[in-house]
Design a protein around this nucleic acid. Sequence first.
DNA 1: TCACTTAAATAAATGATGCGGATTAAATCT
DNA 2: AGATTTAATCCGCATCATTTATTTAAGTGA
Lengths: 419, 419
Amino acid sequence: MGITAQPGLNAPVQMKTADPELMRAINRFHVMDAIRRFGPIARVEISDRTELSATTVSAITGALLDDGLIITHQLGGIRDAARGRPRVLLDLNPDAAHVVGARLAPDHITIATTNFRADIRSSITLPVRVGRHGVSVVADLVEDGIRRSVADAGLELSQISGVCIGLPGVVERGAGICRASPLFGERDIPLAAELTRRLDGVAATLDSDVNLVTLAEHWFGQARGLDDFLVVSVEMGLGLGIMHKGELFRGANGLGPDLGDLLVKPPNGSGLVRLAEVASEESMLADARRALSASEHEHAFRLGRGMEKLLERAEAGDPAIVALLRAAGEALGFAIANLIVLFAPPKVILAGAALAAGEALVRPLRDTVSALLPPSLADVADIVVHEWGDEDWARGAAAMTLRDLYGAPWGTTGPAPHR
Amino acid sequence: MGITAQPGLNAPVQMKTADPELMRAINRFHVMDAIRRFGPIARVEISDRTELSATTVSAITGALLDDGLIITHQLGGIRDAARGRPRVLLDLNPDAAHVVGARLAPDHITIATTNFRADIRSSITLPVRVGRHGVSVVADLVEDGIRRSVADAGLELSQISGVCIGLPGVVERGAGICRASPLFGERDIPLAAELTRRLDGVAATLDSDVNLVTLAEHWFGQARGLDDFLVVSVEMGLGLGIMHKGELFRGANGLGPDLGDLLVKPPNGSGLVRLAEVASEESMLADARRALSASEHEHAFRLGRGMEKLLERAEAGDPAIVALLRAAGEALGFAIANLIVLFAPPKVILAGAALAAGEALVRPLRDTVSALLPPSLADVADIVVHEWGDEDWARGAAAMTLRDLYGAPWGTTGPAPHR
DNA sequence: TCACTTAAATAAATGATGCGGATTAAATCT
DNA sequence: AGATTTAATCCGCATCATTTATTTAAGTGA
């Protein structure tokens, strides 16, 4: 039954060699992509958009229908002044497959089961201080969470086509290894293999959490239809996602950059520090704890409600907190200005829990960026904040698996699903 | 007759749709690329390397032979213990086409005519202070230089398949427009169209000069066979070339980044300045002039021999100059450390006239990089200096045109040459 | 009811591709 | 000279997309 995601795998030694199979895979992907992006859509319109001939589209959609990946959606919709045969609309078959996305954050784990259209069918959030536990405990929790979420969605584990786990840090997706993460003391954790084993062979992949949001933004967020943009996530760690020509840009070895390692000039002081030491949630909380030492807020920080408390104090105008957020914002602004210089993206999206701090952090960030950018780049990039719920991150993880399922024949993705 | 390069052109609205023609173009390119990279090579070996079937390779090489793009090179070479039918070696036909590369530098223009294998057939260097003249004068000089170089190579202009002009600054290759350059006061100069017109319709393209070195490094420099690396050029301006998965990475709009716009912390001082204000040749000379004010060296700087003079003083141990170079090296080191964080390239190549300053600049650069990089990235990137002669840059420009001629069917490159 | 229009499927012909297996070519070895 | 080995090519086959035309569907409009 069903489709199975091919985890990361074989980085092609060189560019793929072309054969009829590749040709078909490419066109098939185009059709799938058109259907995914343009909702219920008629064959003629697919033909228009993809510039494939009507015959080819018919053939491919026929195969997709046979495979159960898409369904017909008879309602012609609004047909004004339409005379001839009504178009029959095609759409992804929501039930063609189900995938699970999980996201590991410092103080909770969110897991969502989605259908083939990335609609969430069930989700759960486990309030866990991930860093407090070892890898095997976390793997246990994730395994149980996944089994639970799948059951909640009324499914069997065997019906799941793939699982994607997103976590902060440096992740080598192809190998399924977490090279380094603020969540774990260990390095080079082969988490994907471990979970695949635990989940009775259901393919599990690993990715950096920023990449998940980046894909999510591209698919259903603020960057729909945008083929070049950056996502900066401000969480416990700092992440950078790069979408370039519609593809996720991964570093040289297939591992994403860790923005936290970027070096910035601290607003007060003359040395250089890692960005993570100024602008990550972790560092901000540490600073705040220092500023409000031994006060009544200590309790809140202990409970992991730190950022909320921090925001509260900022709104109350606590000068220490405001200064701290400004410092973080300025450091981020510096980093983002440099990223804009490098990539000239039309849009930069800020995501992550720390953004809840709102204008106290974002305004200095924007001000810094516009102060630092040269005039020629002043209006290139639109900086927007997008606050995502926990579910959305998990949905991004699910989308990452679906992307493989849809069968993109290029990049590090596996081959098209067979038959 | 002959092949004609298709300048930049049509950024595909979406990923190319696959048809047999594309398939052939892809495989054809693979074969061409194998021949270019692995010198005289037998068909079997192409088959091995490309993983194309022997039949396909035979068909493609047959067509290439018909087109005159490659030639047979009967000498079997060293055949030890070879028994069967001897392999016939194939190689690029040096005379299949000729291209011209030009490179505009602050104080000279170098132009080279090369054959199909990027062997230089003639080259000239015009000692011109480019910045002193308007665009039309420069275009005049380039036109005349190209005509002269072509004639020197014993060719007619009509035999030239394409021309590529490299210059510092922000260049939008696809449009053939120089958006901004330290050489010109004006912006948005449509230099490619202008030169195409002047050269009786020979296709002229524009590119950032760093991209030329980057391609040159990939083809015949220190990055042969490396599919991920960075090139930082330190000249009048500061440039960054990014090779990612064997392809030149261009910014969102197809324009390369200007490293000079990166913001760095000046070693002495607390604000932020553009990297170009610390580490470009221009700024270093300005600082040097200030340091050695009204001295006997003034004359040298006037004559454009500034960098040589500077190097001379540095070797003599002039503390002001040494400090100046250290400052530049440290600023570059900071920038490069951040680039390594972002891209994790196995190699970073430093190129450009300013590198002649040698260890006085490079040592602080290296020291800064290793001091700033986090341990996890400490050994990722190999930083090397590569000093290029003027001809080499021009050769890079020629290679850029050849790359199109070879017919890479992806990226922003034009279609495969016909018939 | 009967044209008319548009959508989609179907069929046949064409051309291009790559592949596998058999075949020819050109050397060396015995 | 004949066997052997390796290189390159030839022949037939299957796949796939494209074009053109034909057919079936399912509406609208008079």
